[in-house]
Design a protein around this nucleic acid. Structure first.
Lengths: 259, 259
DNA sequence: TAACGAGGTTCATTTAATGAACCACTAACG
DNA sequence: CGTTAGTGGTTCATTAAATGAACCTCGTTA
């Protein structure tokens, strides 16, 4: 059902590591007959979503993508779309949410959606710089973000915020590899006492995290009974926000989060 | 021929002035049955090129556009694509080409492709700031670019480069309205003696020029016999480069250039 | 020279797209 | 308070378009 969709799905095979693909190759990748693959490519090309290199005859994403992206930004500026999705999640889980983005080389709070369902809630100062060693978001970023964050772990001085704060690079590195498998992490009062944080990555185009989404729960409500709901929401958000910012999930990323 | 293309063409109806469109409306715009329009939208939505606002039920460009645009930039960085197209045109007309882009509020040379076919050729210093009153590119930009360029014409001091340089704002304004109708312009040694320039606009997403493409011809080769070829190439470049940078031609723009 | 895989084409077969009529709902109006 | 006209969305017999095996041509490699 949907030839148009089948045609569009051919675009999925272009990636940063493989920005140009030949006809036979893409037909094989998509499991299509060469004839149909060619017709689809021609349709996409006419619209400008695909461009053929006249020399090599192979295909790449076309300039129409730029026009559409510009229109997208007009219709839904990045953070606007993110806020909507976070608000929806907030109503589901009834807790506050934080979106952090990697700006240059620091992790910064970009958006905070506070719960309206509880008077006891976690409030976070926006525009705060997030320590990588003390928060769920930070650890997530170390696991899925650019390598330089992990590399400079030793050279940086890691501040201790509470008793639970990790400051030993070795221990952090162990934790980071764990998170890499799980896809998410939590922090039990390692930044502020009484605050449980659950975080998951938001990926960019090259499948490297550009930020994180976190759900902050006060200790009293951080029961194991509520965890499945929180993890499900977290996973959905991770996917949706990745899409929202034009990113791509790694194939190896778990399809759901387990406690 | 091509359902996929028909589906994609629905995307054409989104614009900066109309970033969200309802089902019935877009069906009417595209001249499609509501049922087919809906199916197309659903296909585009599944791919992420369209997003439905759950509240208003109307549709807008989706986040997949961002991902594709990022991939496009990887495959063909803006100026790379432009250079290729300019090189192709250079072989056709055998003359040097200049691409200028509006950076902030000045017009700057972004790319120069020099002809390999003649030893007498026009060479231009790259990274030069282009005077709006003395060059074909500048005049083009005044005609099709942002309004502030025209507005500040009186307050700026207009340098005289040659005998032919226009320095009277009134005369320039007249010329600019002429160019607005023709779509292109030339300059006969108003910047440097012996250099004929032919220029046309490159449009951005909002149909306002973001730069220009110019063909520079030494006086000896600037015969009226060669003009049709030059104008045809210029028009093609104007369209292609507009697409290359993700822009959109105004509907009122001429479909060909006349002498 | 032969064999291979590349891009691209052809055309009988099949499958999926199409659209008129329909439903449910909302807002405006007399 | 019923009427009208506008939404968004669905249904299903009809029709038109997508499909793919086989084929062609051309450049590389053995």
């Amino acid at each position: 059902m949907g030839t148009a969709l089948n045609a569009l799905k051919m675009l999925e095979y272009f990636s940063s590591s493989q920005p140009e693909i030949g006809l036979s190759h893409i037909a094989r990748l998509a499991g299509l007959n060469k004839a149909t693959a060619l017709r689809h490519l021609r349709a996409l090309e006419e619209f400008g979503l695909i461009e053929q290199n006249p020399q090599t005859k192979s295909y790449a994403i076309g300039p129409a993508a730029l026009r559409l992206a510009a229109l997208r930004e007009i219709a839904k500026p990045g953070l606007d779309g993110a806020r909507q999705k976070m608000q929806a999640a907030m109503h589901e889980v009834g807790e506050s949410l934080h979106l952090t983005l990697l700006e240059k080389d620091t992790l910064q709070t970009a958006l905070v959606v506070e719960t309206t369902q509880h008077s006891v809630r976690v409030s976070l100062d926006p525009s705060e710089i997030i320590p990588v060693n003390a928060t769920a978001s930070g650890l997530c970023m170390l696991s899925f973000g650019p390598a330089f964050l992990l590399e400079r772990l030793e050279s940086d001085t890691l501040t201790r915020f509470t008793e639970a704060t990790m400051t030993d690079p070795k221990i952090i590195r162990d934790r980071v590899t764990q998170i890499g498998r799980a896809g998410w992490t939590n922090s039990n009062g390692s930044f502020e006492d009484g605050v449980f944080g659950y975080a998951a990555p938001i990926f960019g185009i090259d499948q490297i995290a550009i930020g994180t989404i976190a759900i902050a729960v006060p200790e009293i409500r951080a029961t194991s009974a509520r965890q499945p709901l929180i993890l499900a929401s977290l996973h959905t958000l991770s996917k949706e926000l990745t899409a929202n910012f034009g990113g791509q999930m790694p194939e190896t990323f778990p399809t759901e989060f387990h406690p």
